[in-house]
Nucleic acid binder design. Structure first.
Length: 300
DNA sequence: GGAATAACCTGGATGC
DNA sequence: TGCATCCAGGTTATTC
């Protein structure tokens, strides 16, 4: 499931090939991949053909590719199973291929950027760039203070230099929801999904059902530090892959699944205390944690 | 405005 | 073997 590390691996892999490239052709195989682009496939293709890509940018799980000499960008969200793959021109269609961009790069020649998506929760769109509310760069990969409008509502991610730790602590102090739910709220802090929420809470020894406002300042600081460590480590290992759902632009899996301590380890011994890792229902998904060393604490 | 929940979707795993 | 059901989960609309 692509979360911040997986999306960043995709961005970093695409950037050398797509930045500076001219879009020579667009093939839309499945309009469901354009649910965020209301005018439809023909409009999407017409607007992109002949344009040049200026940058490859990410905030949280959103990617966008600003177009040169324009205030617009191609915005991409991978959803649960989206992939962006670099292929040779004329390469056979990928399974679940939805959209293909033919590009021409001044150094790398002709390439194909393939958007494939099994569960069709992901999408591409052409979107307006709008000024950031804080004047800082819109995301990683572009120094300009603009952000794709579809990503403007989400918070900055914990690895963003402009992330405001103090505002995050203040927001948590107002929330009476479980900390796990708050970590998944992209409006507050972006880039964290179910896997890295479980891993960060395990590392910080915080029970996922702890009310956010009940966490001490010290606990919130510890959690933020662990969130950053977990994301950076996952990024260094190429992200988390359980199956073919997440791969980099070359179709290769990441290695962080081998480093998980809580997520997907139901019944196994906790790497810290030896107790069994538990799995409990959490809204319409699951939480994994160690009941022995992630105890619910009294407020304060 | 905050909080909670359902719906969207496909394919692998599981049970009968 | 074949069919039905469950499960995975990011985002958003809806409801309270």
């Amino acid at each position: 499931m692509p979360e911040l590390p997986e999306v960043e691996v995709v961005r970093a892999g695409l950037a050398p090939a797509i930045v500076g490239a001219r879009i020579a052709g667009v093939e839309v195989h499945d309009e469901r991949a354009l649910t965020r682009h209301a005018p439809g496939g023909a409009h999407f293709a017409r607007e992109l053909e002949g344009r040049r890509v200026r940058a490859a940018v990410r905030r949280g799980k959103f990617l966008w590719f600003p177009l040169a000499e324009a205030d617009t960008a191609i915005v991409a969200h991978l959803g649960m199973s989206g992939q962006m793959l670099l292929r040779s021109p004329g390469a056979p269609a990928e399974r679940h291929e939805r959209i293909r961009l033919a590009i021409e790069h001044p150094d790398h020649g002709e390439l194909a950027v393939v958007f494939a998506d099994q569960r069709t929760f992901g999408s591409l769109a052409i979107d307006d760039l709008v000024p950031t509310s804080d004047g800082a760069p819109g995301g990683f990969g572009d120094p300009l203070p603009v952000v794709a409008s579809q990503a403007a509502h989400i918070g900055r991610d914990p690895l963003d230099p402009a992330f405001d730790d103090r505002a995050f602590r203040a927001a948590l102090a107002r929330r009476r929801s479980a900390i796990k739910r708050v970590l998944l709220d992209q409006n507050l802090v972006s880039g964290i999904g179910n896997i890295y929420a479980d891993e960060s809470l395990w590392a910080a020894r915080i029970h996922p059902e702890t009310i956010a406002a009940d966490l001490s300042t010290r606990a919130v600081n510890r959690l933020l530090a662990e969130v950053r460590l977990v994301l950076q480590k996952a990024l260094a290992e190429g992200g988390t892959s359980f199956d073919a759902q997440y791969v980099n632009v070359n179709g290769q899996a990441g290695y962080f699944a081998h480093s998980l301590n809580a997520y997907g380890r139901t019944g196994e011994a906790c790497q810290r205390c030896g107790g069994p890792v538990a799995r409990v229902a959490f809204t319409n998904r699951s939480s994994h944690f160690c009941p022995r060393c992630q105890r619910k604490r009294r407020p304060g």
